[in-house]
Design a binder for these strands. Structure first.
Lengths: 347, 347
DNA sequence: GACGATCATTGGATCGATCAAGGGGGAGGC
DNA sequence: GCCTCCCCCTTGATCGATCCAATGATCGTC
């Protein structure tokens, strides 16, 4: 039998059991039953036992709506669900959402998804906030110019961001992020340890702070090891064929022996170019990506990739959220977590 | 300015506006405000206008908890969130969840995620049901021996399944599914049209009804075109290297010119074998997968793949759910949707 | 055995919405 | 003029939990 006794073979009563039902049956008042559920310490051990017994017998579970109304909470965390873009390999949302659901459940919260509306990016937040449908939000897209974090701050709505407030020095909200630069240092050092000296970088356009951060990890590690980076960097759009073209140009002009990419999508482009030129990834040329996407995992020649610790991110977010909601002083405004490197045949 | 007037520059009041606040300000009773929101037809046009004006001025939005308590509904749909398995390419959950969130929102519902517990697969459902936290469920894993659908049916809990009740003839619940056999007929015919006659099948083990269904699409189309299938079929585990091994054996023994796979994961295995043997996918040998995963989309040689119409599935599910919850007679117990074929360079 | 202090438990009010009846007023019919 | 009807709106009760203040039980103490 499962953890909770849900009595296979029995049906749920048409009208669910209420607190009053339990109270009557156990011969105590409603408040006592309420205390048995929420403040067991207040009851005498024998009373507690009797009430718990009755709760189990009747299969009672507090009505969420009534509790929410009285306590002015919902035990729900709102998350705007943005799916992975088609044609890219950036599918970390899936893993992150799962981790968040798990971590939230541990803390007694559920995750409520709401759709994204590009025309009115804060509309969904506003509705949920006004109707007190959620206790807090988790914000994921903290890219340049995204008004959500600032708007929520201004509304004094509790939220934690996954991602640093890159472009906003004024931001005072709580955030959790993964140290992309550290991940790239890890990857670069890995390649250097394998004997590579001419390691090329293929990243995003300069206006992406995330991309520039990752790039800095490559740059600093190269220089720290006394290696040159001139002519070895390229900045392109985050699509497969851009990665392929960049790799072709770099191969022709600078003869790198390894490629470090800001995303798995770009890495796939590199692999395409290698395939066309009959170069074997891992043996002739090393390739490393970022995100440890499914693509990296199932690609015939496994792609080495920087893996974000999304499980830890979720745990940390929920921890911050709880502190925020219980009005405890938050230890620190931001938390930065270290990624790991999933090493495969491509390096 | 956005669709809903959320007044940038203003803060949310500390205590949210209530129905009574609006009533007082508009000079009407609480019930009249309630009717303005839920049954506008009951009001005289000028009163309605006045109330609406006041609602807009105060930025009023009905308190969810109070409404839920009174109406005994929650406008929430529960979904057990199971992430994609690592090391496989089956990441349709991401796309499906997004579609479901969108379709639900259209109908005034939000999606509530709860975690999966393998030890107690119905525990999560039970809790939410007992505490009347959700109005209905969407069940996604209807594989062999999964007790969820049967358990929910027995509890008389409203739910719609994504997936047929393969192994349960007794099942009377509502479901929506994608016709995998039709998808494979499409794919097989596509390959035949391209001149292929020796088309091999790599699928899952025989105890997977989904796998057998997909296989039947290949089989029937081959036979309908007078083509032989002997020695051209293989049944393996759904992992990359199994697909690779199966492809190697088939190439040696039966010399197929095309491979049809039950999943993109297996197709990746096939591509691996082709790569090792220096065979060009699409030119020397055609390959087709199933699910149109990100892998199929970003693989250097785009992988042709059967694409499930998940957007339509979600819409259909929400439609059924609404009928179920409004106690309308459901037109049909099950709905079967046709997949499409995403044609790329591999075929 | 009376006393205040502490502990365990209780009854009434409340959260903010909707439901179910009931009331005021104008139009229309006799 | 009076009654009925209908439309529009209001009032009181209710959903099921928790908050708050108060009451009864238990205890040690003098």
């Amino acid at each position: 039998m499962g953890r909770s006794d849900h009595r296979p073979g029995s049906q749920l009563p048409v009208t669910p059991t209420t607190l009053a039902d339990v109270a009557e049956r156990a011969g105590v008042s409603r408040q006592t039953v309420s205390n048995a559920v929420n403040n067991p310490d207040l009851l005498r051990p024998d009373t507690l036992e009797r009430v718990r017994q009755t709760i189990a017998e009747l299969g009672y579970s507090p009505n969420r709506a009534a509790r929410n109304l009285r306590t002015r909470t919902s035990s729900l965390i709102g998350l705007r669900f943005t799916p992975a873009q088609e044609g890219t390999a950036n599918a970390m949302m899936d893993r992150f959402v799962h981790s968040l659901v798990e971590a939230s459940a541990e803390a007694g919260y559920h995750v409520l998804l709401f759709p994204s509306d590009d025309e009115d990016p804060v509309g969904g937040y506003d509705n949920l906030l006004r109707s007190t449908a959620v206790d807090a939000f988790v914000v994921t897209d903290t890219y340049l110019g995204n008004p959500q974090a600032a708007w929520l701050s201004q509304q004094r709505a509790p939220f934690v961001a996954f991602g640093r407030p890159w472009d906003d020095d004024e931001a005072r909200h709580v955030w959790v992020d993964v140290d992309g630069a550290a991940g790239m240092r890890l990857a670069t050092q890995h390649l250097i340890d394998r004997g590579h000296t001419r390691i090329a970088w293929i990243g995003w356009r300069k206006d992406s702070p995330i991309g520039e951060d990752r790039r800095s990890g490559w740059l600093s590690t190269m220089h720290a090891n006394g290696l040159s980076t001139t002519g070895l960097a390229s900045r392109v759009e985050d699509v497969v064929h851009s990665g392929a073209e960049a790799a072709a140009v770099l191969l022709d002009e600078s003869e790198p022996t390894a490629f470090l990419c800001a995303s798995d999508t770009l890495a796939m482009g590199v692999l395409h170019t290698l395939w066309i030129r009959q170069l074997a990834p891992g043996r002739d040329i090393a390739v490393v990506g970022f995100d440890d996407s499914q693509v990296a995992q199932v690609y015939p020649v496994g792609l080495t990739s920087v893996r974000q610790p999304l499980e830890d991110v979720a745990v940390e977010i929920v921890r911050s959220l709880r502190a925020l909601l219980s009005h405890q002083p938050v230890e620190s405004r931001g938390v930065l977590l270290e990624p790991t490197l999933a090493i495969r045949e491509s390096s």
